[in-house]
Amino acid sequence: MEVRTIKVFTTVDNINLHTQVVDMSMTYGQQFGPTYLDGADVTKIKPHNSHEGKTFYVLPNDDTLRVEAFEYYHTTDPSFLGRYMSALNHTKKWKYPQVNGLTSIKWADNNCYLATALLTLQQIELKFNPPALQDAYYRARAGEAANFCALILAYCNKTVGELGDVRETMSYLFQHANLDSCKRVLNVVCKTCGQQQTTLKGVEAVMYMGTLSYEQFKKGVQIPCTCGKQATKYLVQQESPFVMMSAPPAQYELKHGTFTCASEYTGNYQCGHYKHITSKETLYCIDGALLTKSSEYKGPITDVFYKENSYTTTIK
Results as ranks from 00 to 15, higher is better:
residue 3 V to A: 13
residue 4 R to P: 14
residue 4 R to Q: 15
residue 8 V to H: 06
residue 8 V to M: 15
residue 9 F to M: 12
residue 11 T to G: 02
residue 12 V to L: 07
residue 16 N to G: 08
residue 17 L to H: 10
residue 19 T to F: 08
residue 19 T to P: 13
residue 20 Q to H: 14
residue 20 Q to D: 07
residue 23 D to G: 11
residue 25 S to P: 06
residue 38 D to W: 12
residue 44 K to I: 15
residue 50 S to C: 08
residue 51 H to W: 06
residue 53 G to A: 13
residue 54 K to Y: 14
residue 59 L to C: 12
residue 61 N to E: 13
residue 62 D to P: 06
residue 63 D to K: 08
residue 64 T to Y: 13
residue 65 L to E: 07
residue 68 E to S: 07
residue 68 E to V: 05
residue 70 F to M: 15
residue 71 E to K: 11
residue 72 Y to M: 11
residue 73 Y to H: 04
residue 74 H to C: 07
residue 76 T to I: 14
residue 79 S to L: 13
residue 80 F to G: 04
residue 82 G to H: 15
residue 85 M to P: 03
residue 87 A to V: 06
residue 93 K to H: 12
residue 94 W to F: 03
residue 102 L to A: 10
residue 104 S to L: 07
residue 106 K to E: 11
residue 108 A to F: 03
residue 108 A to W: 00
residue 112 C to V: 00
residue 112 C to E: 04
residue 113 Y to K: 01
residue 115 A to N: 08
residue 118 L to Y: 07
residue 118 L to R: 04
residue 121 L to F: 08
residue 126 L to W: 01
residue 127 K to D: 11
residue 128 F to I: 04
residue 134 Q to G: 06
residue 142 A to Q: 15
residue 151 L to Q: 03
residue 155 Y to F: 05
residue 156 C to H: 01
residue 156 C to W: 00
residue 157 N to L: 01
residue 161 G to P: 05
residue 162 E to H: 01
residue 163 L to K: 15
residue 164 G to T: 05
residue 164 G to P: 00
residue 172 Y to C: 10
residue 174 F to C: 03
residue 175 Q to H: 14
residue 176 H to V: 08
residue 180 D to F: 07
residue 186 L to R: 02
residue 199 T to E: 15
residue 204 E to G: 09
residue 204 E to M: 10
residue 206 V to D: 03
residue 211 T to Y: 03
residue 211 T to I: 08
residue 213 S to N: 11
residue 213 S to E: 06
residue 214 Y to G: 01
residue 215 E to W: 06
residue 217 F to T: 05
residue 218 K to Q: 06
residue 223 I to G: 13
residue 223 I to N: 05
residue 224 P to Y: 12
residue 226 T to M: 10
residue 227 C to V: 01
residue 228 G to R: 03
residue 230 Q to N: 11
residue 242 F to I: 00
residue 243 V to G: 00
residue 251 Q to C: 14
residue 254 L to S: 00
residue 255 K to W: 06
residue 256 H to D: 06
residue 256 H to S: 12
residue 256 H to I: 15
residue 259 F to D: 02
residue 260 T to Y: 06
residue 272 G to L: 00
residue 276 H to R: 00
residue 280 K to I: 11
residue 284 Y to P: 01
residue 287 D to E: 03
residue 291 L to H: 15
residue 292 T to Y: 11
residue 296 E to A: 15
residue 297 Y to C: 04
residue 299 G to F: 03
residue 299 G to R: 06
residue 300 P to W: 11
residue 301 I to Y: 00
residue 302 T to N: 02
residue 306 Y to C: 00
residue 306 Y to I: 04
residue 307 K to F: 11
residue 308 E to I: 14
residue 308 E to T: 13
residue 310 S to D: 14
residue 310 S to F: 09
residue 316 K to A: 15
residue 316 K to I: 14
